[in-house]
Design a protein around this nucleic acid. Structure first.
Length: 871
RNA sequence: GGGCGAUUAGCUCAGCUGGGAGAGCGCCGUCUCGACAAGGCGGAGGUCACUGGUUCGAGCCCAGUAUCGCCCACCA
């Protein structure tokens, strides 16, 4: 009794809430979820029966951008769908220490205090970063809550947690012992911006116009010279050879002789190598193994000396002639060119457009140089990782990414894993003189120095799906949630992250880390450019949820309305595709309209049903049976689309059901019955409402949870799932109602064309089959006064199964009606002509499938009947 | 240099294994019809980039062309 009165009081609140207000509702609902403990499953059962996803860990100091909002919405829809289906579901949450990104931010902060990390010292610096993390590390987590992401917030991980660090070090040591990890002097991509080596994957090519200098090198025997072409004359100081193509007749007699390096005086052997392109430049190539990747390889083939004239600080070293030492590369280039000019050995200059490597991290031009670094051999680890994708144990969606993965894996190269940073997993290697110790802890004894470098952030990321669950311990969590079910990410980190997780998962956890990889769209700015803060093309998802300024990329200025999280979520999913898409604010607005529509449909239902309604359904009328049938189809459609990672169609199917079936037709059809508080109707309405909420919840969780709290007799959270007995599809009810819907539309269109007042009730006769249960609906929704008599008709509207005859009425302008009839006649004639042509085609009749031919014949008959009626 | 994707209504995008092109927004008209004007109802608007081909039939399949985007790659 108490409960009922409470329910009534709550439902009465709905009277006044005619518009859905996400700003008021969403924080309240978020709180309820977090307090419920629903998102933190017990680590029980097996991974096969449970459902889990590991979040791609955002940078600890980052904040939510559009890519996160989109990706996290996808994951949340999957997570909520499985949780509601009754599976034990865990969304593994955590953040990444993001070595370079975080260190750079803190260094910038120090710079503003006129401090450098070197001045501060390593320990104090690390301390400072930890404090920074304390301060900003929680931001993105709070933003995830705002979005409604149902992560396991009580079990948050960080890639520098003690346990995680131990896992990383252990992996390093094991790989070292297996011989996969080694230290080598090798030509690396040196990033002068971060003063660290970076991996091939962190390098991007950019087009640059350089000057191509043609420089004459005198031959040692004084018999002439050979001219080489270069865009980097400063590196000539480190030349150790000149190379020509073995088949190049112009230079055949030079091979084996020696040239003299200008400015330096070193004698260079002239060698022959297939790599040289005779048609490029002069066909003679200066060889600089110390500063060019190709030359490095050539140098190794020919046993050439490797000279380094550029140091890790980006300045010339004392290996260069004294007058150049200490200059930056740009200064050195100018000085070398000037010196060469002085000698008159630059015979030509050309502008030359080519692509050169830049650091994705700092934006600085990469300086290839030889450096002592740690590397990891990947080919053996790749083999099983290729197999699991080839055999389908790991599946990419969309499937075209499979080949991208395969191509890269089959040509995989060693990975430079050491970084000259302070923020990260410090390499577990100690040195003392010639001795090296690799282990989880420092060696005994005095005088050991630990390697100063840290590991590439992606090294620790590669362990994410299992290191977050307690590996190397065989924890209950690991048993319950590893392997995870799906990895959701953008294509840009297939190599950086996805591939490496598969390799490491197989090697260390003994199993694939996930069975499916969903590669989602990248959402571009409305103008098609990349979304980026610095370009002014970034759109902050928080501004879309809470209201905020429209960034400059929008033609329309002003503020975003506070669309709310549901609208953002629905809009992002609706935008998504199997390819990249442009951000469309329209879609977010459409999402907020859906929310408002659903809210008002719920108000109509909850304020209209009998107060003691229970959800025991026994549909009586054809429209009740119809909506239950349509609901069943919508349910199948939406869940199937989600399971296929086809989120735009899932979102649209939901929208279509709510608008086009539930609101536009069903609720309109039952309005007259509503005032009677008819129990069967109330039960059906309540059932349909709850089922619709459950269907929509993975996509728009807030509003559905809020409405659910008003449902009589509904305890607990919608997010936990609801019991539902799916009704079977009812073909007969669908056919019957689809027929009357079409008839109503036909009559409405006719009225509009014939300029009948919208409010006018037209006297009419229904001369058509199949409307026994629905004639009343036709009359009401098409505004017809259906009669059995009334004299001669003045017009006929063809409808499925026959026609509606309109009787004389002051509201009916016969002139307009005649115009309508004439226009329709022309259209029908044209259609008949087309279909006659088709049916007169012997090839069509002979070769087209029977059902297609039959369909054409039916259509032909229908059109003929209509033509008859229009006479 | 190789590969992938795209080109459909004014805009953003759908179109399943080939049967006669859809949605949202925008636009036009109309309606205070017992939830919702962020609404209802009706409507206009497309030689499906181009050229050939296969087929009874092509937005969809094949070949080529053009434009745009992305990825990979060691031409100084």
């Amino acid at each position: 009794m108490q409960g009922l009165r409470h329910t009534l009081a709550r439902v009465a609140e709905l009277e006044n809430r005619t518009r859905y207000d996400p700003a008021e509702v969403e924080p309240r609902i978020a709180r309820r979820w977090l307090d419920s403990g629903l998102f933190g499953p017990e680590p029980e059962g097996t991974a096969a029966e449970n459902y889990s996803i590991a979040i791609p860990p955002p940078n600890v100091t980052g904040s939510l951008h559009m890519g996160h909002a989109f990706q996290d919405t996808i994951m949340d829809a999957l997570i909520r769908r499985h949780r509601m289906a009754g599976q034990r579901t865990k969304w593994i949450l955590g953040t990444d220490h993001a070595g370079i990104a975080t260190q750079t931010q803190v260094e910038q902060l120090l710079a503003s205090e006129e401090m450098s990390r070197e001045e501060l010292g390593r320990e104090a610096f690390e301390e400072r970063v930890w404090r920074w993390r304390e301060q900003y590390g929680g931001t993105i987590i709070e933003q995830l809550k705002r979005l409604g992401a149902s992560c396991d917030y009580d079990d948050e991980r960080f890639t520098l947690d003690d346990d995680y660090v131990q896992a990383v070090l252990r992996v390093f040591v094991v790989l070292y012992q297996k011989g996969y990890i080694y230290r080598d002097r090798y030509l690396v991509n040196w990033d002068p911006g971060t003063a660290s080596a970076i991996s091939d994957l962190e390098v991007e090519e950019q087009e640059v116009t350089d000057t191509l200098y043609f420089i004459d090198y005198q031959l040692a025997d004084g018999s002439g010279s050979v001219t080489v072409a270069t865009v980097r004359p400063e590196t000539m100081l480190a030349d150790t050879a000149v190379a020509v193509h073995p088949d190049d007749e112009r230079y055949a007699d030079l091979v084996g002789r020696r040239a003299i390096l200008p400015l330096v005086g070193r004698e260079l052997p002239i060698i022959a190598d297939e790599y040289v392109k005779p048609e490029f430049g002069t066909g003679a190539l200066k060889i600089t193994p110390g500063h060019d990747p190709n030359d490095f390889e050539i140098g190794r083939r020919h046993g050439l000396e490797q000279i380094s004239v550029i140091g890790e600080d980006g300045r010339l070293t004392d290996q260069a002639p004294e007058r150049f030492a200490g200059l930056t590369t740009a200064e050195a280039q100018a000085a070398v060119v000037a010196a060469l000019d002085e000698r008159g050995v630059i015979s030509k200059r050309e502008d030359y457009l080519h692509s050169v490597p830049f650091s994705q991290r700092s934006g600085k031009r990469i300086e290839p140089l030889i450096s002592l670094q740690w590397f990891m051999r990947m080919d053996e680890l790749a083999r099983p990782a290729i197999d699991v994708v080839r055999s389908g144990q790991v599946t990419f969606h969309p499937s075209r990414w499979t080949r991208v993965y395969m191509d890269w894996m089959e040509n995989i190269r060693p990975w430079c894993i050491s970084r000259q940073l302070w923020w990260g997993h410090r390499i577990p290697v100690w040195y003392r003189g010639e001795e090296t110790h690799v282990g989880l802890t420092a060696p005994e004894g005095e005088g050991w120095e630990r390697d100063p470098d840290v590991l590439d952030t992606w090294f620790s990321s590669a362990l994410w799906p299992f290191a977050t669950l307690g590996w190397p311990e065989q924890t209950p969590a690991l048993r319950a949630f590893y392997p995870t079910d799906v990895l959701v990410t953008a294509r840009d980190i297939i190599f950086l992250w996805v591939a490496r997780m598969i390799m490491m998962g197989l090697e260390f956890a003994g199993q694939i880390p996930f069975s499916d990889v969903h590669i989602h769209s990248i959402i571009q700015a409305p103008d098609g450019r990349r979304m980026s803060k610095s370009l002014g093309t970034g759109i902050d998802p928080l501004d879309l949820m809470n209201g905020g300024p429209r960034p400059p990329v929008f033609e329309q200025g002003g503020e975003f309305p506070a669309y709310g999280a549901d609208a953002l979520r629905w809009g992002l999913l609706a935008m998504s595709s199997s390819q990249d898409v442009r951000f469309a604010e329209d879609k977010i607005a459409q999402g907020s309209q859906l929310a408002n529509k659903l809210w008002n449909a719920a108000r109509l239902i909850l304020l209209g049903i009998a107060p003691e309604t229970t959800a025991a359904v026994s549909p009586r009328t054809v429209e009740d049976r119809w909506i239950l049938s349509r609901l069943q189809r919508a349910r199948a459609e939406v869940t199937q689309r989600i399971d296929a990672y086809d989120f735009s169609h899932a979102a649209l199917a939901l929208y279509d059901f709510v608008y086009a079936e539930l609101c536009d037709w069903y609720l309109e059809l039952v309005k007259p019955r509503l005032r009677d508080h008819e129990p069967e109707l109330s039960a059906t309405l309540l059932h349909v409402l709850v089922a619709t909420l459950a269907l929509a919840h993975p996509i728009i969780p807030f509003i559905t949870e809020e409405i659910y709290s008003y449902v009589p007799g509904a305890g607990g959270l919608l997010a936990a799932g609801v019991e539902g007995t799916p009704a079977p599809v009812d073909e007969a009810a669908e056919a019957s109602l689809d027929r009357v819907i079409k008839a109503i539309q036909d009559v409405r269109a006719w009225r509009d064309f014939a300029e009948v007042r919208a409010a006018a009730l037209l006297p009419a006769r229904l001369l058509a089959d199949g409307y026994d249960d629905t004639a009343e609906h036709l009359g009401r929704l098409a505004r017809l006064s259906l009669e059995t008599d009334g004299g001669d008709p003045v017009a006929a509207v063809p409808v499925p199964g026959g026609a509606v005859e309109l009787l004389a009425s002051p509201d009916l302008d016969l002139g307009a009606a005649e115009r309508k009839r004439e226009s329709r006649r022309v259209k029908v004639e044209r259609e008949i002509e087309a279909i006659e042509r088709k049916l007169g085609n012997a090839g069509f009749l002979a070769k087209a499938p029977a059902d297609v031919v039959q369909k054409a014949r039916d259509e032909f008959e229908r059109l003929q009947a209509e033509r008859e009626a229009l006479r």
